Simulated scan of single mutants.
Amino acid sequence: MHRGKGMKFVGDSRVKADGRKPNIPKDYSEYPGKTEAFWPNFLLREWMVGAVFLMGFLCLTVAHPAPLEAIADPLEAYIPLPDWYFLFLYQLLKYEFASGDFNVLGTVVIPGVAFGALLLAPWLDTSKERRPHRRPIATSIMLLGVASVVYLTWESVDQHDWEAAAQQGKLVEGAEIDEEAEGFEIYSSQDSCIQCHGDQMTGGAGAPNLLETEKTPEEVIEIIQNGQGAMPADQFTGSEEELQILAEFIANHGQDPE
């Protein structure tokens, strides 16, 4: 009898005629030295590595704590600066065609078109070539995007006032004030004084530090009554005696003159 097409030889009735077997992956023990159990071997090793990095990170935070700034002052001008990967968008909003009345153009339209073009690049150029000069559309879009981001980032860094930014929010050690003095009680009762010069008399945006003044009591009284610069006149609501005590207290740098 010749072996013909379609003939099947089954030596065991328990084996199916089609010969198909379930695709069961081999146990990891059949590959010694090449694999390991997920639990507990793999997870234990990952947890140990994670614990080492966590302890190292905690040590760095203790040794080099995050720099703190002074309490936010709404009267003080603040120079904002986003993280480095958003500097090109920050610079874009400085131009007239992308800010002001055209703010939506600079925040939504232009970035949307730019990133949309990068996303559509594979469909705009379906060539199978891998060499850049053989794919002019995709290459041009990519080079234009990279050049724009680099240029705008550079302009943002170059135009930023780094010296002024380093000084803003800088912590200043509080000066010693005699809070038991009568002059401080009078100062604390004047809302117009506290709003500009602060409750510690250290000043703010447009308001000088009263603890560093070199003026005499008479000059302080003259300024309080008649104003100076941005300070309006006739803001003091106390008596002339209280005004004299306050002027002497300010002229003595926050200390009781007696």
Rank of each mutant, 00 (worst) to 15 (best):
K5Y: 03
A205W: 01
N103Y: 03
G229E: 05
P67D: 10
G198D: 11
E241A: 14
A165M: 12
L118D: 00
L68H: 13
R20F: 05
A166V: 03
A247W: 01
Q244V: 07
I245K: 15
P65Y: 09
T237E: 07
G19E: 03
F102W: 02
L211P: 01
T213A: 07
I177D: 00
A207D: 08
A147Y: 02
V15C: 03
Q255A: 14
G4S: 09
E242S: 07
F102Y: 11
L60V: 11
N209Q: 04
M1L: 12
L43R: 11
V52P: 11
R130D: 15
Y28E: 13
P232F: 02
P22M: 11
A70I: 08
E155R: 12
L68C: 08
L143H: 06
E180G: 11
M1S: 07
E212H: 07
G238E: 00
A70M: 11
E240C: 08
E176G: 02
L43F: 11
K128L: 06
W47S: 04
A138L: 05
G145I: 07
E222C: 01
Y95I: 06
L143R: 03
R20A: 12
G254M: 00
S188L: 11
W84M: 06
G116S: 14
D27L: 05
K94Q: 14
A77R: 15
N209M: 00
D158T: 13
L43E: 04
P208C: 15
I245T: 15
I186D: 03
L120N: 00
A70Y: 02
V146L: 09
E176S: 12
H2F: 06
A230E: 15
A147H: 01
T216W: 01
S192T: 15
L105S: 00
G204W: 04
F249I: 01
G169M: 01
F57W: 08
D234A: 14
R45E: 14
G6T: 06
L87E: 05
P22Q: 14
Q244S: 11
Y90V: 00
S188P: 02
S13Q: 13
I79S: 14
Q159A: 12
E179R: 06
F57T: 09
P65A: 07
L75N: 08
Q200T: 14
A147N: 01
P82M: 05
E36D: 04
F97W: 10
L246A: 03
P40V: 00
A17Q: 13
E240V: 13
I71D: 10
P136Q: 03
K16N: 10
G204Y: 03
A117R: 05
F9C: 05
A147L: 12
N252R: 02
F236Y: 04
A166G: 07
D234N: 15
W162V: 01
P111G: 00
P208T: 04
D178T: 01
P257N: 08
F53K: 05
A37L: 08
V10D: 05
G204P: 01
A165Q: 15
V157K: 06
E46R: 14
M48Q: 10
L124G: 05
W39R: 08
H253T: 11
G229P: 03
I224E: 01
M48A: 11
M231H: 15
E219I: 10
Q225E: 15
